[in-house]
């Protein structure tokens, strides 16, 4: 398992590493923002969530926060929340990320996907004042964790899907966005996205089979 996040450190400028080791109290200083991994490098987000899970590392959380918190807030506002409600909710979503880091399964979801599901559930609680029934959780126990190459494979497929999404014709992309921002009713939603979903689905299915096997 990718519990070893030393690779993260090696990506930082030497100076920055020194600062972190010598004076960890400075983690809130603004210059720490150079820690933010390059946008779209999904593997780095996975390492940060695992670091958060294993050591409650506030700097790792800050890097995740800087990337995802504004996006969650924007998603909530596009879904009909006003600014103050979206602010409250985004804070709550990020706090959930902190508390549920152990539930994240990188063989089945990118960090963006995981954050999306938390934000969506919170949006339903908040805007529709109803709870969202969720499937039973399936999680890797401490004794059996997923293989690193499966993690990398899934993360790469998620990136590919993001790129395919960006390459869609404008109208098609807008229609999918409308569905996910809650602008379409369930009877208006057609699942034909024009996206190549087959490969990522096969990977998730395989990950579920391995997980079921590990659980029995």
């Amino acid at each position: 398992m990718l519990r070893d996040v030393s690779t993260l450190d090696s990506q930082l400028p030497t100076e920055e590493r020194a600062v972190r080791r010598v004076a960890p109290v400075q983690v809130r200083a603004p210059e720490r923002h150079v820690m933010t991994p390059p946008t779209g490098d999904a593997a780095d987000w996975v390492a940060l969530v695992q670091k958060l899970r294993d050591t409650r590392d506030e700097a790792a959380f800050r890097a995740l926060f800087d990337h995802f918190a504004p996006r969650v807030k924007a998603y909530l506002m596009k879904s009909g929340a006003d600014a103050s409600m979206a602010e409250e909710c985004a804070q709550d979503v990020m706090a959930t990320l902190w508390h549920k880091a152990h539930q994240f399964d990188p063989t089945r979801a990118s960090v963006a996907t995981w954050v999306y599901t938390i934000a969506r559930n919170r949006r339903i609680d908040m805007l529709r004042k109803q709870r969202r029934p969720e499937p039973e959780e399936l999680a890797w126990g401490p004794e059996a964790e997923p293989e690193p190459d499966e993690v990398v494979g899934l993360q790469q497929e998620s990136l590919k899907l993001g790129r395919a999404m960006a390459a869609l014709p404008e109208k098609q992309r807008e229609l999918i966005q409308k569905a996910y921002f809650g602008e379409l009713s369930h009877s208006e939603i057609a699942a034909e996205t024009g996206l190549p979903l087959g490969t990522i689905k096969s990977r998730i299915r395989l990950a579920l089979e391995r997980l079921r096997h590990a659980m029995t």
Binding site: A74, A83, Y116
Partner: peptide, 15 residues
Amino acid sequence: DTVGGAILDTVESDT
């Protein structure tokens, strides 16, 4: 959900 994740990751934020 992965499609939702891709949308979240590219949402434009001006707030």
